[in-house]
Design a binder for these strands. Structure first.
Length: 212
DNA sequence: CTCCCGATAT
DNA sequence: ATATCAGGAG
């Protein structure tokens, strides 16, 4: 049973890696702090929208204290179009304030430290681990949740349980690639509303194919 | 569990 | 009109 699932998971990954060899984080950034901010802004918002607002932000705010010292209302107005702008502005300022106090303005490269920081949960921490620190992590966002459930790689709906379930299916070295290709597949083929099962490269292993 | 929230696709 | 978008905090 479990072995069967692992075999299927392995096939699926192999095909998705060939389908999306260029899969990567689509948030624009040039250092860990910028990615941390972009990832906070990306909650319930498309990367495309985040990438529209970050260039002006990254030009204005260079260091953690630059963010921490800006008035709440100013930052709110600058990020308004990404939604949840009050919470996001609060999170960014609280995060940068703490980075400044405890980490010399740097983003720590340790998962357990990251998730303790304000505004950073498991998803954002894993994005940072995988994308800028080159360390293992399974990023479970809305896409990975949907894709892994449709492919029956897990039957859980709790993102934390999904994260652990996928960790069990693949070797640690693959986790980063798994995260990126699953996000790409969810974004460009296995979409929420109208999944394109007719051109899906892994439909052969998908119990949900054409059931929409 | 609820709340936060604007932009876009359907 | 409604669902959805690289979630996190209380």
């Amino acid at each position: 049973m479990i072995k069967d699932l692992r075999q299927r998971a392995k096939k699926i990954l192999s095909v998705l890696e060939k389908e999306y060899p260029y899969a990567h984080c689509e948030l624009d950034f040039s250092n860990p702090l910028q990615l941390a901010v972009a990832a906070i802004l990306s909650a319930q918002c498309t990367d495309k929208r985040v990438n529209m607002v970050t260039p002006a932000l990254f030009k204005k705010y260079r260091t953690a204290s630059d963010w921490a010292d800006t008035p709440q209302e100013v930052l709110e107005n600058e990020i308004r179009s990404t939604g949840f702008y009050r919470n996001k502005a609060r999170s960014i300022r609280a995060l940068c304030s703490e980075l400044d106090e405890r980490f010399n303005g740097e983003v720590p490269d340790d998962f357990d430290e990251l998730v303790k920081l304000p505004g950073i949960g498991r998803k954002t921490a894993n994005v940072l681990m995988v994308t800028v620190f080159n360390k293992p992590g399974i990023v479970v966002d809305t896409h990975v949740t949907r894709v892994s459930r449709r492919l029956a790689l897990t039957k859980h709906s709790d993102p934390v349980k999904i994260e652990f379930a996928i960790q069990e299916l693949y070797p640690e070295k693959k986790w980063g690639r798994v995260s990126h290709v699953m996000v790409f597949h969810g974004r460009y083929c296995c979409t929420a509303r109208k999944p394109e099962c007719n051109r899906c490269p892994v439909r052969r292993w998908c119990p949900s194919a054409d059931k929409f």
